[in-house]
Design a protein around this nucleic acid. Structure first.
Lengths: 363, 363
DNA sequence: CTGAAAGCGCTAACAA
DNA sequence: TTGTTAGCGCTTTCAG
């Protein structure tokens, strides 16, 4: 039997559909007697107003969206069933990752603001959910770094509010953004390595595409240049891929002398690199220092702990959703593009942190 | 300027609205020439079909929902900004909790099945988002334990597919459920305490309302009865509240002799109890054994590690969304109510786990 | 392969 | 305070 609609309820209560609508939208405009009448009919029929019809009529969905890459590799996800529930010193699957923590912040903000959240994950290039599937259901969407082209984003921004996370909004109309100080964080890390640990020869591992990684590389290079240390060559490594990890190991074995440090563009890459360094027979940090970027939880659980630059991930999510909510409330706002500070986390993998990890605020 | 709709696109392309609709829904029915015509218009106008209008016309939303309690206390969430980004041996705010891990499983399954997910959290009794706000936007919803009455659930199930997590579906029509073996897990834990550690006097801490806790209590009592150990009295403690933790501490101080063990209905309660036990001047596990239930991550990070019963939380979420997707695909299905096995995790807080934690499968 | 037109269920003027 | 009615934007027969 198909669910009741306004007409059914109106007929059952002996009122008009407008009155039934008012019962939900502006009960204060109805008399007590009418209220009771409608309530009875609603309860009896188990009536739940359709969000689709309501959205159509109101010309807005009343919901917000989050679109993200999954952070995991497809095959890893498919196998997740097996991996998820085992336990050990090293987790079989990394969690929570950057995207998970940002999501938590977004959810939190949505809960506080009473906004239903529609989430969708991109998985690899083709799998998962498309941004359009999310966007068509919401008034505005927070977009995490994903393989969405600038053009698509600009197109979308014409009809929906868009807030970019970890990608510069570029002052484009209708596109807000929130980023962290990637450049400053990486520069601070580089200075630490050079001045405290005397590092003068290092490798850089990480994908070189994308705004975040470019900013990090820039921070690294400028700090090294200032310190008079030769810049590392480009090392392209796909974060998380086992092949990349093997490649690093092979390069280490092939090298006449291993670098004093390997600076990675992300913690996930760094965890793979740590494995590779050990596979090549070197000790961390005595032979090779390894550093990451992000501050995911897994970096605390390795031995030694991973020295890294921590992004305020949950805050990033909250800020992004906050910007979105504000824009929805006032579309006239100019573009906002805040930058959040990061924090240098010194743990064992750089040779610091005998005892508790130290943390240093940057920017 | 308001966003383009089908009519705009149809006019721009010189075709009918039906053709524009077919462009998206069944492109194989259109000639190449028409396809090109429409594509051009769509791109030029930045057209994104409205999910609301589509849902209305199709009589289904094409999305699924997840409704959950937040797992955190409201004040904790409000202050989250400050707490979220600090670091230390014990995290200022517990994460990920049960609900977070289940959510992850649900998201994962949605990603694989390409289903947009609408999430909403209840916060305390009144704050946060209401179940109706989620339900009206989706075809079916997964509901985590929350303060939703049986009556409301039954009402909702009349119009939407509902899958309960950690609550028995009770064979009701249209209500599926997935639970874990709470009773068996707690019984296994109790037997371990009695037979391995010789526990004969213990307290039970945890809220006594709700299906999960009732099942756990039942498992505890029956195992103790079988072993001829006197049953603990009821101890009602609101999980996570500081007042409850203080109360435990006070009771310990008032007691002539502390119990050999305090068995808790959840890890969150157990973490509070561990604090309380120490505050009362006792050592864990030498003086007092403390155990939890859930297997959240935070239980690994305490010193000593928390002995607990691990639920396969991610799998719970995946299973729930799987059931929902299947029912949506075939509404004729009878009620499904699977029970997932749990695992006993022996760590330091019961006196086991010199070295690596042991884990024992239950059921 | 394409078009015309009738809804889908709700809201919001506008009247009464 | 309540009712009438015209859309909201899309899909889907039914014709052609």
């Amino acid at each position: 039997m198909k669910p009741a609609n306004v007409y059914d309820v109106a007929a059952a209560a002996g009122v008009s559909t407008a009155t039934v609508s008012r019962y939900f939208r502006s009960p204060e405009k109805l008399s007590q007697a009418t209220l009771d009448l409608v309530r009875e009919a609603v309860d009896r029929l188990g009536y739940l107003p359709s969000g689709m019809a309501r959205g159509l009529a109101e010309r807005q969905t009343g919901a917000v969206g989050l679109y993200s890459f999954s952070g995991h590799e497809p095959d890893e996800l498919i196998d997740a069933d097996r991996a998820a529930d085992s336990e050990g010193p090293v987790r079989p699957r990394l969690y929570p990752l950057f995207a998970d923590e940002v999501l938590r912040g977004v959810e939190l903000e949505c809960t506080l603001r009473r906004l239903p959240l529609v989430v969708g994950w991109q998985l690899g290039r083709e799998a998962g959910i498309s941004l359009d599937e999310i966007a068509r259901r919401v008034d505005g969407v927070v977009v995490l770094p994903s393989t969405i082209s600038e053009a698509q984003l600009a197109q979308l921004a014409k009809t929906k509010a868009v807030v970019l996370v970890s990608q510069p909004g570029g002052g484009r109309d209708g596109i807000d953004s929130v980023v962290v100080d990637n450049e400053g964080g990486m520069a601070a890390l580089a200075e630490h390595l050079v001045h405290v640990h005397g590092v003068r020869a290092l490798w850089y591992a990480g994908p070189e595409n994308g705004y975040e990684h470019e900013a990090r590389r820039r921070g690294l290079d400028s700090a090294l240049a200032r310190a008079g240390v030769p810049l590392p060559g480009p090392t392209v490594v796909d974060a998380g891929s086992r092949a990349a990890s093997r490649e690093i190991a092979a390069r280490l074995l092939a090298a006449e002398e291993p670098p004093r440090a390997i600076v990675c563009a992300s913690d996930q890459t760094a965890l793979g690199v740590m494995e590779a360094v050990r596979a090549a027979g070197h000790r961390i940090p005595e032979d090779v220092i390894v550093t990451g970027f992000d501050g995911i939880d897994a970096g605390r659980l390795t031995d030694p702990g991973l020295t890294t630059v921590r992004q305020p991930m949950e805050r990033l999510g909250r800020a992004a959703m906050g910007l979105l909510a504000e824009r929805l409330a006032d579309p006239g706002l100019g573009p906002r593009n805040p930058m959040l500070p990061v924090e240098l986390l010194l743990r064992g993998s750089c040779g610091c942190g005998d005892g508790r990890p130290a943390s240093i605020s940057v920017s």
